[in-house]
Structure formats: structure tokens, C-alpha cells
Nucleic acid binder design. Structure first.
Lengths: 331, 331
DNA sequence: TTGAAAGCGCTACCAC
DNA sequence: GTGGTAGCGCTTTCAA
């Protein structure tokens, strides 16, 4: 691995000049530049980020912590973040916390020691105090989706309340007269907001009763179980709004298992808009978050902060969209 | 962020002593140790991996490149790798190449610049020459699953041939008399091996004909299309072995769409053993690779190489297992 | 058992 | 325009 000194020697200039060229600051003679470029080629020189980091220049690694990589929503989100980072010359470290505090803290420690340039948190189980160290060292932080609110950082989230309302309204439009909601963990902000959105509409109707609310944990299995419980409680439901797509997929499976026709007997709508909703039969109607845009935006804002040393913190609430498919409308 | 010098000053010793203690090499007086430990606590000191890296000590970051994060097989694999790395004090950089050469090269460049300690490749589109730089710098490399063979590194793969044979045999046992195979890209070693495994058994039968081989790209959509093509060619097939679970899921969807009963009319078997095979209705029979073990093993071998400066290179072929579910056996 | 000092590869400041 | 050089935080001889 060639060093800057070797390049300088080969090009017959000083390391300072090479450094200036590489970082494109300061003046460098055209002819000198050519010679240096050639030397770089010849030695196949790549500046060491390590040394660069030590020498005070900001590093080019940013981290994204997701709570559950087995939920395709997060890989999709990660892809978007990754794409933008890569195109801007940053490398992404994808950390899967699995909602495991141990892992999370191990990651925080590692990130801190490795001096990441920026940090995107999409995990709900990371506490404010855990971010303290990073924050103290001035590392820009962006909170994405589940991670909820926090001081001193920008927050990016879809309009969960509106999306939930949209879902319920859609089910009503499709003729449903008793709509249940499988809600996610109330410790998670997105789950809370979606529940609120549901209630906002549902409570206007006579059929509404709290027992239409079934708890889930955002994972597929809980969707199956929720359906079971729901059918015992309310054999006459004709619409289900699941708090996310994974639970919706589980719910669909539960319904099919019980021999229930979807959407004829019960219509079903999810939330997230992950690709997998097109995998089921029938395909799932869902409220699509702009996943790609959220990821890109998070990365962009983060990099903006890294490169400008700060910038104002805002709360971005992105719009959602109903995607109508066969789980709510029989052809 | 406290430095080693501050710790040394507070403890009233030299930086060398602190360094010795931290790295647990060389002698340190009990009493001195206590004082240093206390200083470390007090300043909440974490050694900088950056500086440590520059100073010649090996870094604690390893990278895993996967070809397609939207195939749950890879997140599952990554989780296993990640867990083991974390438990051994390493941080994992998860790189999703999307089979995109641009991205791949960008990653390789970044990894090189950041001097990763080790590298696990699970991507098929990374060429030998792309690994050249890493290899030259002495970075240990492990090839996992799709990445195929390469010199100077250990290789870990499931027994794809045997798994495929197992699948076909299982379909035969279930009474199938004409079994098709949806195969993956033949540029990928695992796809080739599975095709071979299929042929090994199928060719022994009179019903076998090359037109039972339908190409796919390991993604769900291609499973749907493959089924369509297959049914045109052979309306009388009664068994399908898909080259991986994602295509199997697609195939299932295609079959259901056409109103075909699974497994009554056509039995279906996948390959990989991803969790999602339990999400469909009917659930999918599949050949399970020991995903967790593969990931852990890859990480373990890699870390072994990192810490021992090399070690012999072996080819590990892990055993697979048939998981029988309703897509091949009607209750 | 401990300390002093020479780098690791690079950036940035100050002279020339 | 260009070069000399002082660190960045740490590890690692080599002496003491």
C-alpha cells in the first residue's frame, strides 16, 4: 500500500503538494498535477482514511442502526441510505440492533471508538443517554422512523397518523362496517401514531369499541395470532388495518388458514409499502411510506450536517400514499 | 474525547504504561494498574481505533459484501456474521452490492482505504481481480455461499448438490412423476450446483427432458414468470423444485393465481430455508441451509485468520436438511 | 516495572 | 505555487 510520501517522491514534489491536490484545496500547477496524477496511477495509491482521520480531517464512515433487519422495511430503507452515502463518497456501516440493548451498546462503543462521521438512528430501543457520548463528540445525528424524537437532531418520519386514517377511510369506502386494528408496540412512536390515526376515524362510528384493538409486535407471527384473537372476539369484523406490512402478511395467512375469503369476507390493509406486499395472494393493499425518499433524505441531511458542521434541526414528516390491491378490492 | 495522554497524566504514569495495560502486554504493577483504571473510568476514556490502526495495530472492522439484501437469505446470513463479530469485539460493515459493479468497486475502494481487518465475500459479481488489492495488502478473505471459489482463502458453502437431490427425491417420494426445476443464474456457483443435483436424479427417469428446466434469476418475480412458461410447456407437471426460496415463493404465487392446488396438483419445494417460507399459505417445503452456522463459521474463520496472521485455507461444505411442509404434503 | 521517543500516513499552517 | 514541518492518538522498541 503506497503512501503519500512515495507518490511525492516519484512525482518529484513534496507531500504537501500531493495532499493539496488530493483534497483539491490550494493551488497546484497544471504540469505538477499531471505528474502527481501519473505517480498516483503508477503506484495505485489510495489515501488512507485512517491516517486522514487521525490527522483531523473528518472521516467518511457513517452508521445506520436498525432495530430489526428481518423486517424488509429496514433493508429497503438501508439500501436507500446506502446508495446516497456511496454516491457522496461515504461508507455506510449497517448495524442491526435486534432491539437488543447489549448489541446496541456494543455498537455505540464501537462507533465511538471508530469515530464515525455521522449517525442515523432508526431503532426505538436506543435511549437518549446512549446517544450522549456521540452527541458530546459533536457527531451529527439524524433520527429516522421508529427512533422517535430527540433534541439536537433532525427527525424524519412518514405521516403515520394520516396514513392510518387513510387506511381506515379506504376500508370504509370499500364497504367495511366494522374495522379492527392490529397495533404495534406502544413504546414505538410510529405504532402510537398509527393507532391514533385509526382511532381518529373509527371513533366517529357506532361500531367502534376498544376490543377491536389487538396488540401485535410488528412481526409476522403476531399478525397470525392477532387474527385468531380478533375472530374470537368479533366474528363479524369485515375489515382489518394492520399496523405494518409484516403483521398484515401474518394476518392474511391467519385469515386464509381459517378459510376466510380476502377481501370478500374481510378486507385487509397494511402499512409500510414494502415490496413483499406484492408477494402474497391476494396482494396486499397498503399505505406506502416513501421508503427510498426517507432513506435518501436522512443520508442527505446527515451528510449536509457533517460537511457544514451542523445546520438547523428540523422535523420532516413525509407524505404517504394508499396503494390499492386485491386484499381490499375484489375484481 | 479523552486521550491516552490525559489518562497517563491523571494516573501519574507514562502513556507507554497505559498502553501496555490496555493491550495487556508487558508488565504493569498492580497498584499502578488500579490508578490507571481509575483514571480511565474518571475520564471515560475509550482508545481511538483510528489512532490504533495508524500505529500499526490491526483494526477491528470487518466487512461482509452481499449481492442482494432484498433476498432475506442475506439479512439472515448477515445477522449470524454480525453476532459473532460483535461478540468477538469486531464491528461489521455490511455492504450491499446489489450485483452492481459500480457499487462493488466503490465498496472495495472504501474498504481498502479504511483498512478493514478482514473481508467476507458473499457476492458472485466480485471478480478475482477485484479482490487483488485487498489480498495484496494481506487482508484475510473468506468466500461465502455465492461467491464461489478463489485462491488463498477459505470457502464456505452448503452442500447444494446434495440438497437439490434431496428435494427431487422428496418430490418423487411424494408421488410426483414429472418434476421441473426453476434454476438460478448459471454464473452463480450455487445455482449451478443445484441444477446439477437436480439433473443427477432427474436424468434417471423417463419423464426427464431439458425443457423441464426453466431459467430464473433468484428473485421472486422470476418465479412467477417461470411457472407461466412451465405450464405452457408442460401442463402435466406435478412437481417443481425451485432453485431458491424467493423463486419458490414467486412460483407459489404464480400457481395460486392460475388456480392450481398446491400440493394436490403440483407440489413445490424451495431451497435456502429462509424464515419467510413459513409465511406463505401453504407453507413451503424447503431445503434448509444452516444459515446461522454458515455465517458464524465464516466470521469465526475470518477472525481466526486475522488474529493468527493466516492459517490454512479450506473448503467447508455444510450439510443441508429437508424441511417438509404443506407445499409438498397435503394433510 | 516503567518511561522516552520514534514513527504510522496524512493534513494544515507558515515560509519561501 | 510549493515545500518544510508540527502534530493527530496510539503502539512499540530500547533504556533505565
Amino acid at each position: 500500500m503506497a503512501t503519500i510520501r512515495e507518490v511525492a517522491a516519484l512525482a518529484g514534489v513534496s507531500v504537501a503538494t500531493v495532499s493539496r491536490l488530493i483534497n483539491r484545496n490550494g493551488y497546484v500547477n497544471k504540469e505538477t498535477e499531471r505528474k502527481i496524477q501519473q505517480a498516483i496511477e503508477e503506484l495505485n495509491y489510495h489515501p488512507s482514511s485512517i491516517a486522514r482521520g487521525l490527522a483531523g480531517k473528518r472521516m467518511d464512515v457513517v452508521a445506520l442502526v436498525v432495530p430489526d433487519i428481518s423486517n424488509p422495511f429496514f433493508p429497503e430503507l438501508a439500501r436507500a441510505v446506502e446508495d446516497l452515502c456511496l454516491s457522496r463518497g461515504y461508507t455506510l456501516i449497517l448495524c442491526n440492533s435486534d432491539n437488543d440493548r447489549e448489541k446496541e451498546l456494543a455498537y455505540m462503543k464501537s462507533l465511538h471508538r471508530n469515530s464515525v462521521a455521522g449517525f442515523i438512528c432508526a431503532s426505538d430501543s436506543l435511549l437518549q443517554e446512549d446517544l450522549q457520548e456521540l452527541r458530546q463528540s459533536g457527531t451529527p445525528i439524524v433520527m429516522l422512523d421508529r427512533s422517535g424524537n430527540a433534541d439536537d437532531c433532525s427527525i424524519i418520519r412518514a405521516d403515520n397518523r394520516k396514513g392510518a386514517a387513510l387506511a381506515v377511510q379506504h376500508l370504509l369506502d370499500k364497504g367495511c362496517r366494522k374495522i379492527a386494528h392490529i397495533y404495534g408496540p406502544q413504546s414505538i412512536v410510529t405504532a402510537r401514531e398509527r393507532l391514533e390515526g385509526y382511532e381518529q376515524i373509527a371513533q366517529q362510528y357506532a361500531w367502534y369499541t376498544p376490543s377491536l384493538l389487538i396488540p401485535g409486535d410488528f412481526r409476522m407471527e403476531s399478525g397470525i395470532e392477532a387474527v385468531q384473537l380478533l375472530l374470537e372476539r368479533h366474528p363479524d369484523v369485515d375489515g382489518i388495518f394492520a399496523g405494518n406490512d409484516m403483521m398484515a402478511i401474518g394476518a392474511l395467512k391467519g385469515l386464509i388458514r381459517q378459510g376466510i375469503q380476502v377481501p370478500e369476507q374481510i378486507a385487509l390493509c397494511g402499512f409500510d409499502g414494502i415490496g413483499m406486499t406484492r408477494m402474497t395472494e391476494p396482494e396486499l393493499t397498503t399505505i406506502a411510506q416513501p421508503i427510498g425518499e426517507m432513506g435518501r433524505m436522512a443520508a442527505e441531511i446527515l451528510i449536509g450536517k457533517i460537511e457544514s458542521n451542523g445546520g438547523e434541526n428540523r422535523f420532516y414528516e413525509l407524505d404517504v400514499q394508499l396503494i390499492e390491491r386485491s386484499s381490499t378490492s375484489s375484481t
